[in-house]
Amino acid sequence: MNGIIKAGLVGLGKIARDQHLPAIEQTGGIDLVAVASRNAQADGVNNYPTLDAMLAGEPDMDAVILCQPPQVRYEAAREAILAGKHVFLEKPPGATVTQVEALITLARAQGVTIYASWHSRHAAAVADAKAWMAKRKVTRVSIEWREDVRHWHPSQPWIWEAGGFGVFDPGINALSILTEIMPEPVTMLAASLEVPANKQAPIAASLKMASASGAPIEAAFDWRQTGKQTWDIAVETQDGKLLLSEGGNQLTVDGEVMVQAPEGEYPEMYRQFVQLVKDRAIGADIRPLQLVADAFLCGKHCPTAAFED
């Protein structure tokens, strides 16, 4: 593809305003020309109430960026692909594995790009952690991903509904890093899901996984943490210990800080998307989503106290 990618964004919520709009502004090769949102408008672009209206009003648009809740993303992505548009999916890429697999198949058939974005994989220290682990035998992994849902997802009832993922909305970020840095495949063995009495999605989860060679992998996700947030992945190997902290932006090896950098994940994702579109390529790794689906399939549901968000 030649020239600048003309993109439209669907769903002008917190993540779009905080991350997508600034990242697009910083990225060469892509311009935002339109936004579709029921309840908000963006400055300096054409605004539409729906994706249908945006597709009709912007016939020269090249790509669609989908930032709405995962429960409605499949139909929107399918509509955009059938209209010949490249598609950028905010994470999680869909409400089910089969939905995303169907979208990948459709994108290939239509000759357009589909990009399932995993922003945490682009954290500053993830590539270095992957390279360090590739040369070593992993013996144990421990993940702690604890944050305050009231801070990160204020007034977002969809996230507590079926298909909204609950605590797996942030937890899938940890799983996206895990599947990127592990030199072996990861298998879900068991899970425990804490579901508030007044919600349909879990507020906390404990996962037991294993690598292909049998190394234990445990993860604890919780949405009730206040104060300092915790986004840590600790790895033990036969030749040293690694800690990825700050969501993947700090790397410590055997107690020594090796990488420490500010967040720059979304601009890197957009640079990757621009290249994928130019190459007419597919960028859709669904392993993190598969692990979440497995946790729901094998997980023991544990009722817990009602939660008022």
Rank of each mutant, 00 (worst) to 15 (best):
T113V: 08
M61F: 01
G3P: 11
K85Q: 07
L175S: 04
A215G: 03
R146Q: 14
T139F: 02
N47Y: 07
G171S: 01
P154Q: 11
A116C: 15
H86G: 09
G283H: 02
R280F: 01
H301V: 15
A306S: 15
I104C: 12
L103Q: 02
A83G: 03
V186E: 07
R146H: 15
A219Q: 03
D294V: 03
L178W: 02
A80N: 00
G283A: 08
A293K: 13
T96Q: 08
G214Y: 08
T113M: 09
L207T: 09
V64L: 04
P69S: 09
Q275E: 14
D31V: 14
V87C: 01
P185W: 12
E308G: 08
T105Q: 14
W132S: 14
G29N: 00
A116I: 11
E144T: 11
L9G: 05
I24A: 05
V167H: 14
K300S: 09
I286Y: 04
Q41K: 10
W145G: 02
L89T: 00
A190W: 15
V35W: 00
S37D: 11
G299L: 09
A190P: 10
Q68I: 11
G255Q: 10
D43N: 07
G29T: 03
A23F: 02
H20R: 01
A127V: 04
P154S: 11
I181G: 01
V253H: 11
L82S: 04
E263V: 06
A162S: 10
G94D: 03
A36N: 00
R150H: 10
L66E: 03
V100Q: 08
V141S: 09
N47Q: 11
A281F: 02
Q290G: 05
L66R: 00
V277G: 04
D18E: 15
A76G: 13
T105D: 15
G227K: 09
